[in-house]
Amino acid sequence: MSPTISCSSVYKIFGNNAQTLLSESGGNVDAKKFQEAGCIVGVNNASFDVNQGEMLVVMGLSGSGKSTLLRCISRLTDATSGKILIDGEDICLMNSKQLIELRREKMGMVFQNFALLPHKTVLENIAFPLQVKGVTTENSIHKALEMVELVGLKGRENYFPRELSGGQQQRVGIARSLAVEPDIWFLDEPFSALDPLIRKEMQDEFLRLQSVLNKTIMFVTHDFDEALRLADRIAIMKDGIIEQLDKPDNIVLNPATDYVRKFTEDVPREKVLKIESIMDASDPNASGEIAVKKDDIIETVAEKILNSKDTIKVVDEKNSVVGSINPSKVIKVLFGE
């Protein structure tokens, strides 16, 4: 099966003569040189795929180009060069009619500052993408009511955005982005504008939704912890370049660059790593009463493992044994070498 989103050699360069400069450079873009020529490099040679049902988190500090990348893929801004395939079709070559069609059918997006329409109520905001599509008022409102329930805002249908708290507003934003039942879900720092406590709550909510909906997701954040919590895979960006793209545990265990290492240094590994990453897969016949799942995060099962003296077996979803784990390995992770 082909990937849902597929980017190859995507560049986004801001400036007047970006196109010529880029073709002159032959794909070898040096941000400093471009800056001297009056251009700013937003995305520099990004190539990656996102598979059906996968959640890719793009992580980077402000100015790293992560939001720009997201906007290239949703074509809110035109990439300067490169190929961006959505379900096998190049979005860069689409005319505006096709693009509108694509957005109406397949895409949903959530924004950092909610971007709700201030003159519409909760219900109207959620129904908006449907009404734009031409769905009748009655049907769209009906669908919007369903969404209200899904995001837990029942009872506030007729509130205006200004009458809601930040968390509630973002719930509306999420409901709106889901109203057309898109396949691809873009989230641009959706929880950054929220209080830490609310943020945690919304992340949980988000995970719950995703477990139900199973969308293909691109999620942009500047919060490494958030990325680790949510991601199937993480892309870490700096100055427009994807420094590393990998599963969370791999990033933590094997940071590709010094820049990535800086993020991973302070990350408590037991909170990130799954049993799978430290188990001994060469010994699938380990005995013992106790078993842990290979997808369990170390921290959650550490006590269980440490309490037993023996090697413990590791099982997969189907409860068949795939390896074993020795408590000493867990101790290493928890307390270092």
């Binding site: 906007r71 509108i100 957005r103 109406r104 709700l116 329409l117």
Partner: peptide, 26 residues
């Protein structure tokens, strides 16, 4: 805010819809 414009675009607005349903009311 540019985000509101983007939200309109991502909702699948045509230029007309963007103008009359998003920009002017906002």
């Amino acid at each position: 805010s540019p985000e509101v414009v983007e939200a309109g675009l991502m909702s699948g607005c045509t230029k007309r819809q963007l103008l009359f349903k998003v920009l002017i009311p906002t």
